[in-house]
Design a protein around this nucleic acid. Sequence first.
DNA 1: CAAATGTATTAGAATGATTCTAAAGTGAAT
DNA 2: ATTCACTTTAGAATCATTCTAATACATTTG
Lengths: 142, 142
Amino acid sequence: MRLNEKTKALMANKLSAAGLRVTQARLALAHLLFGQGDRHVTADALREEALAAGLKISQATVYNTLNQFHAAGLLRQVQVDQARSYFDTNIDTHHHFYVEDEARLIDIAAQEVDVTRLPDSPKGYDVDRVEVIIRLDKSPKA
Amino acid sequence: MRLNEKTKALMANKLSAAGLRVTQARLALAHLLFGQGDRHVTADALREEALAAGLKISQATVYNTLNQFHAAGLLRQVQVDQARSYFDTNIDTHHHFYVEDEARLIDIAAQEVDVTRLPDSPKGYDVDRVEVIIRLDKSPKA
DNA sequence: CAAATGTATTAGAATGATTCTAAAGTGAAT
DNA sequence: ATTCACTTTAGAATCATTCTAATACATTTG
């Protein structure tokens, strides 16, 4: 895998800013994750992508790294399917379409959805995040 | 476990109406699930409840039955936690609070939430369901 | 710039939820 | 009662994820 110097510096910056040590594995995964716009990846998909790119990286490292990036606030974890976790490189407030048949997530910008009224939280609890998930089906054929 | 005749008849009805054969296991689990207001259960929690109630039932049957009830529209499956599935006996349109620290779901009636604008679905797809999940944290101690 | 220190990475085992298998049981229809 | 299809079962299998404890690497120190 070739990281051009510019991207590499950007990613190294991102990692440092997040308080993470800059290592080969993290740089390479950051490049895959953050070098191409907003993405939704599963651990396994990222692993395959890394291998396809010629990286030598273990599945454990992929999991560790995704969890560290998530803990550091670089990724958001999305739970829409009981079978696996998705990691979303878009950490701004936003929502999702989920195509169950294709196990595919699609971002919805925050301003595309208006939630104009919410109930009060139970006493002793605060709202961490409001998620809107629109589950989609394939339209019937005419 | 004692099922009073009235509840038993109700549950048998519910099963038949859903196109499911009325069996011992299904009757007993239906009684636990639907005999006490709206509930959110995990497969494991339901198993323990069944055993505590003196039922002799295998974990496989609990899973099979939950999946059948779900497929038959008697239960709704809620994915808020990657570790396990919740089954919700409330199948009307509604939403959820989720207390992550306690792995606990709380129903929100549909009329407590106003979603006044949604984006168009991608071409070729229809909305199956809109879910709003409000993730809660414990309030800091004053 | 080499040794020391602490953090990362690894392969492989372990875990935990869920599903599968194939054998034995039960409900419904004759 | 007999048959036939559907259920239930124990236990094995699967799959995503986490853990372990050994090796490698990044950073600090001398």
